[in-house]
Design a protein around this nucleic acid. Structure first.
Ligand SMILES: NC(=O)c1ccc[n+]([C@@H]2O[C@H](COP(=O)([O-])OP(=O)(O)OC[C@H]3O[C@@H](n4cnc5c(N)ncnc54)[C@H](O)[C@@H]3O)[C@@H](O)[C@H]2O)c1
Ligand SMILES: NC(=O)c1ccc[n+]([C@@H]2O[C@H](COP(=O)([O-])OP(=O)(O)OC[C@H]3O[C@@H](n4cnc5c(N)ncnc54)[C@H](O)[C@@H]3O)[C@@H](O)[C@H]2O)c1
Lengths: 214, 214
DNA sequence: CGGAACTTGTTACCTTTTTCACATAATCGG
DNA sequence: CCGATTATGTGAAAAAGGTAACAAGTTCCG
C-alpha cells in the first residue's frame, strides 16, 4: 500500500521488529508469521502487517516472512545501512556515558567528537574521543563530517546550543536536557526528557492500582 | 469532571505544565490563563484545561489559574510531595551518571544505593553512594527503604534483574536497557529505549523532508 | 447595578491509531 | 490437480487522542 506519511510510532515499532528478528535469526529460524512474531514478543499481528505494508509487500501468503530478507528490508528502511558521525555537546557525566555507549556503534553511529565550554575539559580525551572547544563546533563539524548532534548540557544552555548546532548545518539532534526546545521543521529534534519519565513514575507511586501499561 | 482513567500522555503533560508554572512563579507572576500559558510555551489551551479537568476545578473563570495554587495541586497530583528512595542496579557508566543526576533530587527522588555483580565494583563508592552486591538487593532494599529501582545493566541481564527487583517487592522500575521487559500489572515499568530513538533519527536522516514533529 | 471583557469547564467534532475481519494468495499432502 | 491449511494485505470498525466552540461564571469599571 506504500503510505507516504509515516508515523513515528510506526518507525519506533520497526525498530522493535528488527530486534525481534535479530533474536529469531540468531536462533537459526528461517521464516516467521506475523502471528508467531506477535505471540512471542507480545505484539499485535495486524499492526505488524500494517506497519510493514507502509513500505511494500515483504511477506508471502501461506508462508509468512523470510527472516533474513525482512531484516535487510527494515535495516534499509531505517537507514541503518548508512554510517553517521555524532558530535556530543557537553562533556559531563552523561556526555561521557554516551561516548562509550555501545548502542551507538550497533546502530552504525560513531561518536566523532565531544564539545565543552569548560577550559579544563577542552583538549582532554574521553574514551578515545577528543573534547573540542564548543566555539569551534562549526569548523570541527566540517572536518569530522559530523551529521548528528547530541545535547548533554544543563537545561538553561540547551536552546542556545541547539541554535548553534543548527546554524552549523546539522539536521538531526538528540536532546537530553530536560526542557522542550524549538527548531525549524527541517531539523529532526528528539528530546529524551528523564524528568517527565520520573514524574510519571511518581504519579503511579502516589496512585497504585491505576497503572496503564506503557 | 474528575476522570478516573488517566492517560500517561496527560501525566506527561502535567509534568510540562509544572515546569512552565515554575518559570512563571520565578518571574513573580501571580495568575495565568490557559491561553497565555499555551501561547508562551507552545501548547494548546484547550488541552491544558482538559488535562487539569481530569483532577478537579483549579481555575477561576474570568481570571485564570493562581500560579502558586496550581503548582501545589500538580505537585500533589504527581506525588512529588512524597520522598522516594532509588536503587540503581548496574554501577557502570550510565549508573554512575544517573547517581549524580540532579533531576532525581529535584523530583524528590534520592539515590540510596547502587548494586553490581562485579566484585571489583562491590564495596566502592560512587558520588557518595555505596555499591552493594546485587545478591543483597532484597536485604539492602529493606534497610534503606528503597521503593524505586533503576535497571542499568546490559540488555541480556535486564529481565532477570527485573524479576529479582520485583520479587524483592519494588513496584516502580525505570529500565534503560534497550529491550522490552515483562512484569506484572501491579508493577509500573518504564523503559527508556535509546536504540529506538536513535533508529528513529536514522530513519529521518535516510529520508529528509518527511519530518514529523515530535 | 449592569454590561463589556475575560476565561474556565465541557461538549461536540475531528484526526490519528489500533484492532478486527476477511478476501486473496501460496503451500502441501494425497 | 485439488481441497485443506496457512497467512498476508487491506478496508472497515472501534478506540484513543486532540481541537474547536460555547455556555456559564467572574471581574472590572463606569
Ligand atoms: N547525569 C545524568 O544521568 C543525566 C540523565 C538525563 C539527563 N541529563 C541531562 O543532561 C545534561 C547534562 O547532565 P550531566 O549530568 O552530564 O551534567 P554535567 O554538569 O556533568 O555536564 C554538563 C557539561 O556541559 C558543559 N557545558 C555547560 N554549558 C555548556 C555550553 N554552553 N556549551 C558546551 N558545554 C557546556 C559543562 O562544562 C559540563 O562539562 C543536563 O541537562 C541533565 O539534566 C543528565
Ligand atoms: N552508556 C550509556 O550512555 C547508555 C545509555 C542508554 C542506555 N544504556 C544501557 O544501559 C545499560 C548499561 O550501560 P552502561 O554503558 O552503563 O554499561 P556498563 O558496561 O558500563 O555497565 C554495566 C554494569 O552492569 C553490571 N552488571 C552486569 N550484570 C549485572 C547483574 N546481573 N547485576 C548487577 N549488575 C550487573 C556490570 O558489572 C557493569 O558494572 C545497558 O543496557 C545499555 O544499553 C547505556
Amino acid at each position: 500500500m506504500k503510505a507516504d506519511k509515516i508515523s513515528e510510532l510506526t518507525t519506533n515499532r520497526l525498530s522493535i521488529y528488527l530486534r525481534c528478528l535479530n533474536e529469531l535469526a540468531h536462533e537459526g529460524r528461517k521464516t516467521v508469521s506475523s502471528d508467531r512474531l506477535a505471540k512471542r514478543f507480545h505484539l499485535n499481528s495486524a499492526q505488524i502487517r500494517k506497519d510493514l505494508a507502509c513500505f511494500g509487500e515483504f511477506g508471502v501468503r501461506g508462508v509468512g516472512y523470510y527472516i533474513e530478507d525482512l531484516r535487510e528490508q527494515i535495516i534499509r528502511i531505517l537507514g541503518l545501512d548508512h554510517h553517521h558521525r555524532v558530535g556530543i555537546v557537553g562533556a559531563g557525566r552523561l556526555g561521557a556515558a554516551l561516548t562509550d555507549y555501545y548502542g551507538f556503534r550497533q546502530t552504525n553511529f560513531e561518536v566523532a567528537a565531544l564539545f565543552d565550554a569548560d577550559p579544563e575539559k577542552i583538549g582532554s580525551v574521553v574514551s578515545d574521543v577528543k573534547v573540542f572547544d564548543v566555539k569551534d563546533f562549526s569548523k570541527v563539524r566540517k572536518n569530522e563530517g559530523i551529521d548528528v548532534a547530541v545535547i548533554a548540557v544543563p537545561a538553561e544552555y540547551a536552546q542556545k546550543v541547539l541554535e548553534m548546532i543548527v546554524d552549523a548545518g546539522v539536521k538531526a539532534v538528540m536532546n537530553f536536557a530536560p526542557t522542550p526546545l524549538l527548531a525549524d521543521d527541517d531539523v529532526k529534534l528528539k528530546t529524551i526528557d528523564l524528568t517527565i519519565s520520573l514524574e510519571s513514575l511518581s504519579y503511579f507511586l502516589a496512585r497504585p492500582g491505576k497503572n496503564g501499561r506503557e
